[in-house]
Amino acid sequence: MKKLILAAIAVMGFSAANAQDSGSYGFSKGNILLEGNLGFSTNNDKNTDVKTNSFEFNPKAGYFLTDKFALGLDLGIGSDKKKVAGTDADKNSNFNVGVFGRYYFLDLGQRFKTYAEAGVGLNTGKEGEAKYSGVGFGAGLGINYFVSNSFAINFGLTDILAYDTNKYKGGKAVSDFNANLNVFNNFFSTATFGLTYKF
């Protein structure tokens, strides 16, 4: 809920600041898309005396083959640290690189552009001392809100499908599959927030 409220405040603020801006919003064939989502969270559970800090950064770049469809590359960098009182912190890290396709299928007024996106990538990471590598696939929905002709706020709303399989060094593969067929159930519960620039 906090994410949704903060995103709404940001949209209203940018809208007011750019009320005089006019023009055509959206993308055209040949445009280049640059986008980034940055996240940080911290949790301190006084009942269990467990402290957790996590960080994620997901930049991506895409090229529009048509006015509606873009292909591109994305990266994912993440880490988290969990510390229980009196013990050393458990540290986990992950990195992924992949390709994605994005299709804009619905305009909600002039500034809101709704899209579907699917991507596949390679994953590597470390959980404590255990290293792993694997592949992943995901498909989801999102919205861009254009603050100006070239700058937008991005809302990654929900994942419809997600699949990962990772093999740990010296161990067997671990697979995870999730399907959210009822996309309108808790639509904003997994939302991500970022910035989009086109040129």
Rank of each mutant, 00 (worst) to 15 (best):
T42Y: 08
L4I: 15
S15T: 15
L181I: 06
N58P: 11
A89L: 08
F27N: 11
F187P: 05
G140A: 07
L122N: 09
T190S: 07
T158Y: 01
S15M: 10
G140P: 04
Y145I: 00
G125H: 09
L108D: 03
R102V: 03
K172N: 07
Y115P: 03
Y145N: 13
D74L: 01
A16G: 15
F55H: 05
N92W: 01
N18F: 05
F177L: 09
N178E: 07
V50M: 04
L4H: 07
A8K: 10
G125A: 09
T124W: 08
G140Y: 01
A116Y: 14
L161W: 00
K131W: 02
N96M: 05
S15C: 12
V183D: 13
S93M: 01
A152D: 06
T192I: 06
S24D: 14
D21G: 10
F177K: 04
K60Q: 06
A116F: 14
D80R: 03
I153K: 10
T48N: 12
A152Y: 02
N31V: 08
T158E: 00
R102Q: 08
A139N: 07
L73N: 05
V84M: 04
G62R: 02
Y25C: 04
T124V: 11
E117V: 06
M12K: 04
G101P: 01
Y163W: 10
G125E: 04
E35Q: 13
S24A: 07
L38A: 15
T42Q: 09
A10F: 03
F146P: 07
K167Y: 01
Y115I: 10
L4T: 15
D21S: 15
G128Y: 00
T87A: 12
F137R: 03
T66W: 13
S41W: 15
L33D: 02
N144H: 12
F199S: 01
K131Q: 05
V147L: 14
G194A: 10
N37D: 14
S28T: 07
F199H: 08
N92F: 03
G125K: 07
Y145G: 04
S79V: 06
T48A: 09
G136L: 13
Y132V: 04
K51P: 00
V120T: 02
F193T: 13
F188Q: 05
F151S: 09
A16P: 05
S54Y: 05
D88Y: 03
Y163V: 00
N43K: 05
I143N: 15
G194Y: 11
A179E: 10
G23Q: 03
E129M: 04
V97C: 03
K82Q: 08
G138D: 08
Y132D: 03
K91M: 02
N44H: 11
F69H: 08
F177V: 07
G138F: 07
L157Y: 09
N144G: 02
